[in-house]
């Protein structure tokens, strides 16, 4: 861990751009494939309205047609184009995963930093809260929270932030505990800097590497859990083309396998992409440190 943050420290003293380019060059090919897949989905989210694909909510063909030249992934029970719906599904899943990871990182890191830096009661209270939260099996906690708040993607997102923040609290706390002991922090304290200033200016900038790697990997897991919640009826509601609810529409029609095929592959591509990229990032940071 010490090496990791040292590496980031030296990286920060170079220009950021060169550091980033070196990092990308060190990524293994699988990580680059992962990054490309994620980039594809993000571009899709931003530009899907201009794509020459069918309206995802409109009946565009006969019901339950298998894949064909007109409908690459067939049509569903309402005659909607599954290929178009799969592409449009990213507009739900990808932004939600970004928001959930961002909130989990922000809340978890803030609380973890406070716990690690100030210690004492702050530490005791925050870390006991973490202990209790991670005592729940993730899916059951998410289901309980989502059920209490009522179905809907916004509530499912809140549930997922509640599931994920403790991971980042623990990561950040461990990093802060470690960086806090460094000499430059001691120097800053001796120089009369306030506690909050020391934390924000001298400690936090050196603590982000593990969080970044973890957030990359969690991104896919969030997409997966969001789809799971929608699948069991706690996330997106029909007729929105969310991947999980599309699969649940397909679940009652075994013979029409193509209804669920597209969204399943889409989820798989995101999860694989983030684990490739996350693995690659971890190795790249490790090597830079070693």
């Amino acid at each position: 861990m010490a090496e990791l943050s040292n590496a980031l420290g030296t990286a920060a003293s170079r220009t950021r751009f060169v550091g980033l380019r070196r990092l990308v060059r060190r990524l293994p090919p699988t990580a680059k494939v992962g990054a490309a897949i994620l980039l594809f989905w993000i571009v899709t989210v931003l530009t899907i309205h201009f794509w020459p694909v069918a309206d995802p909510l409109a009946m565009v063909g006969r019901r339950l047609q298998p894949p064909s030249g007109d409908h690459w992934l067939g049509t569903d029970a309402l005659g909607r184009d599954v290929f178009s719906r799969t592409l449009h599904g990213s507009v739900w899943s990808i932004p939600i995963a970004i928001v959930v990871v961002a909130f989990a990182v922000a809340i978890g890191s803030a609380l973890g930093a406070v716990a690690g830096f100030f210690g004492g009661w702050w530490d005791a209270v925050i870390m006991r809260l973490v202990d209790v939260t991670v005592s729940f099996p993730p899916i059951l906690l998410a289901m309980a929270v989502a059920a209490m708040l009522g179905p809907g993607l916004a509530n499912a997102s809140i549930a997922m932030v509640i599931v994920w923040w403790p991971i980042y609290a623990r990561l950040m706390r461990a990093q802060v505990l470690e960086v806090r002991e460094r000499e430059h922090v001691e120097a800053a304290v001796a120089g009369g800097a306030g506690r909050v200033r020391v934390l924000v200016v001298h400690v936090l900038p050196l603590c982000w590497t593990p969080t970044l790697i973890n957030a990359t990997m969690d991104f896919g897991q969030v997409v997966l859990l969001a789809a799971s919640l929608s699948f069991i009826g706690l996330g997106a509601t029909p007729p929105s083309p969310e991947w999980g609810s599309m699969i649940s529409e397909g679940a009652t029609r075994f013979y029409n396998w193509w209804i669920a095929f597209g969204p399943g592959m889409a989820i798989l591509s995101v999860v694989l992409a983030t684990s490739f990229l996350g693995d690659g990032l971890r190795d790249a940071f490790d090597r830079r440190a070693g």
Binding site: S228, I247, W257, G264
Partner: peptide, 13 residues
Amino acid sequence: SLPIFWSGLILLY
């Protein structure tokens, strides 16, 4: 990496 509710469905089919 597979969504289990999807792999179950496809294998069942």
